[in-house]
């Protein structure tokens, strides 16, 4: 029996889909059998980010309404051993499925997979209720902006009501802005939201280019964001991984100076 994790945020554009794709891929790289589920019906993106758009035949709504079997709708990502995805429908809207239907689908998927990563749509309406219906736990994504933190707080409140334990990912941190005091720092956010931090992801241009190429960033180990997502994956599996040091720049020379004791 696997575990279902919903990736949610309340606010749009903070990186739910990117986080879903990368955490899912990271877990697959760590040898787990993972299924990504896109519940953003009508505005599906996860397939694009994963580069699997052209392989969709059936979708979530088809499964929910019984037009196909679950196995027919699931797409296997051939780049990895055990990574699958269930795409959302693009033509319908959020009301075309019920939380019960999603719960049944997730329950079915849990039998076959170690982890089900559910990509939640923005907002707290029907789409959100659908996405959290089958989830065992949640990862709330936020960025170091007041508006995103406010919405994350609202969502954490709703998750608490549904008795779903939530952890936090802070996305798109720009260390130079945090240092100059223009951006909220990590401690401040954690203090307000008062939930466990499961990872911080630095702002990285490679994430954007990777998403456009349909390759999750995690696959490129040269990117800092990739390391961050891999760390999150390991933490989900229960490893103790220290938080990334974001402020140490361009290492080698500095490290030598430090080694010589003049740094």
């Amino acid at each position: 029996m696997g575990e279902a994790i919903v990736i949610t945020s309340g606010k749009g554009g903070v990186g739910k889909t990117t986080t879903s794709a990368n955490i899912g891929t990271a877990l697959a790289l760590l040898g787990k059998k993972v299924c990504l589920v896109d519940t953003d019906i009508g505005l599906r993106n996860l397939d694009v980010v994963m580069g699997l758009e052209n392989r969709i035949i059936y979708d979530l709504v088809d499964v929910a309404e019984g037009r196909c079997r679950l196995g027919q709708a699931i797409i296997k990502d051939k780049r990895f051993d055990e990574l699958y995805m269930l795409p959302a429908a693009q033509t319908k809207d959020k009301d075309s499925v019920t939380p019960e239907q999603i719960r049944d689908i997730v329950l079915e998927l849990k039998k076959e997979h170690d982890y089900i990563i559910i990509d939640c749509p923005a907002g707290i309406e029907q789409g959100f209720r659908n996405a959290v219906a089958g989830a065992d736990r949640a990862i709330v994504v936020t960025t170091p902006e007041n508006s995103a933190v406010r919405d994350a707080d609202r969502v954490i409140g709703l998750l608490e009501q549904s008795k779903i334990p939530a952890k936090l990912v802070i996305n798109r941190i720009r260390m130079n802005m945090v240092k100059s005091g223009e951006m909220l720092d990590i401690d401040e956010i954690c203090q307000v939201l008062a939930i466990d931090l499961v990872g911080i992801v630095p702002d990285d241009e490679k994430v954007i280019s990777a998403a456009n190429n349909g390759e999750p960033t995690v696959m490129n180990p040269a990117s800092k964001a990739a390391i961050a997502y891999r760390n999150i994956g390991r933490r989900i599996l229960g490893d103790m991984v220290p938080l990334m040091q974001l402020d140490e720049k361009g290492g080698a020379f500095k490290r030598i100076r430090k080694f010589l004791g003049i740094g």
Binding site: D153, R154, I156, G157, V192, A194
Partner: peptide
């Protein structure tokens, strides 16, 4: 948390935070 309202008739001692919203 944001979006939550606590109403009480009388005095209230809250052990915890009240977040924006």
């Amino acid at each position: 948390r944001s979006g939550q309202i606590v109403k009480h008739d009388g005095d209230l001692l809250l052990i915890g935070d009240v977040n924006p919203g």
